[in-house]
Simulated scan of single mutants.
Amino acid sequence: MIETDDGHLAELIAEYEENGWCHSPFRFTGPAVSLLRDSLDAICRRGGPEVVHEPDSTAVRAVHGCHEFDEAYAALVRHPYLLALAEALTGTPVYVYQFKVNLKQAREGQAWPWHQDFAFWNAEDGLPTPAAVTLAVPLDDVHEGNGPLMLIPGSHHVGYLGPGKITRGDSGDWRKNFAADPEHVMDDARAQELIGTFGSTRATGPAGTIQAFHPNIVHSSSDNTSPDRRALLMVSYNSIDNAPPHPTRPEFLVGRNTDQLKPRWDDHLPLERVP
């Protein structure tokens, strides 16, 4: 098991508070990533209401709530290290608010526009505050050609910039926000202003790495123009005192069990230090 009392959590907290983003010195091993990737492939084949496709395509764009029915993902969200990191960055006990894997299939995966996650969560679910954190684990190697996240470090200091573009009206179709033209996105000119102030960076790296993102950091991703798939697993942990009062989106999008999540070690999901 990985010990978390070696002082690195304090360094990650400082990095996270400064940049709205931090990169753990640990990652999941190759066998652990293979296990998670196999589960993802099985879920994509099985289909279901949790699976979203690219527009007018059979290519899977995202899957949601897999931790509720898949053994490997149920173990992942309870991983002692992930919970310790989430609790350190939020400063509170947490539960799983949202679980998803965003995919960009080879040469088919489409971009995500500039946005803040809290814009969606506040507008769609009534999440009171951004007292949450998203831990991201790529299940494929991520490089500049297969649609990595583009981040504006420090943009979370600007705070919540508003709900952005509203295009759905009263249709109530939650899938709209997982298509190529979602709601609550940021005007590109505003994003470029922020880049002029804070700069930008791409979240590239090998499969299994662990990164954390603030709900208010401004980010986007490009089309996948490469022959390599990009699957990015994201667990959004929320403070148990910050649950939305009356969520209406499906439970596989918005977790209803707001009890503090308890850690549980699984030998199939070991970590190793990043070289």
Rank of each mutant, 00 (worst) to 15 (best):
G145C: 06
Q260D: 12
G169S: 07
H184L: 01
H156Y: 04
P113H: 09
W265C: 02
S220L: 07
L233T: 06
L149W: 04
S34Y: 03
P80Y: 10
F26N: 00
P270I: 10
G154Y: 08
C44A: 09
F198N: 03
A111Q: 14
V63R: 05
T197W: 04
A180W: 03
T134S: 15
L271K: 12
S221R: 04
T197P: 00
A231T: 06
Y81D: 00
D187C: 11
T129R: 15
F99L: 05
V60Q: 10
R175S: 11
Y16E: 04
F252Q: 04
F28I: 07
A119M: 02
H79M: 07
D5T: 09
M234D: 00
A14T: 13
L269I: 02
T58I: 08
V101W: 05
P206W: 01
E71A: 09
T258C: 14
L35S: 11
V142S: 01
D188E: 15
S200G: 00
H184Y: 15
E183F: 00
Y73F: 15
G7F: 08
H156N: 06
Y73I: 03
I217M: 12
S39E: 15
D41T: 06
D117N: 09
E18P: 00
R78S: 09
E17Y: 01
W121G: 02
S57M: 13
L35C: 06
K262Y: 01
D228V: 08
A59N: 13
H8L: 13
H8K: 06
V254I: 09
N257G: 05
M1R: 14
T134F: 06
G159H: 13
L232E: 05
T134D: 03
A88L: 12
I210L: 15
P250T: 02
D188F: 11
T225Q: 12
I195N: 02
G208H: 05
N122S: 12
R273Q: 14
E193S: 05
H156V: 05
G199R: 11
I13M: 10
L12M: 15
E54S: 11
H53G: 04
F118L: 04
M234C: 11
T167V: 14
A207P: 06
E124C: 09
C22Y: 10
G147T: 07
V274Q: 05
D259S: 13
Y81E: 09
Q110P: 00
M1I: 10
T90V: 03
I2G: 03
L253A: 04
E71Q: 03
P55K: 11
A59L: 10
V254F: 02
T29A: 12
G109A: 12
E272N: 01
T225A: 11
V158Y: 07
K176S: 01
D6C: 04
P49A: 15
R168P: 00
G147Y: 12
T197A: 11
S34N: 09
P227R: 14
Q116F: 02
M234R: 10
T204H: 07
W174N: 01
F213L: 15
Q105E: 12
A207K: 13
Q105Y: 02
F178Y: 14
I43N: 06
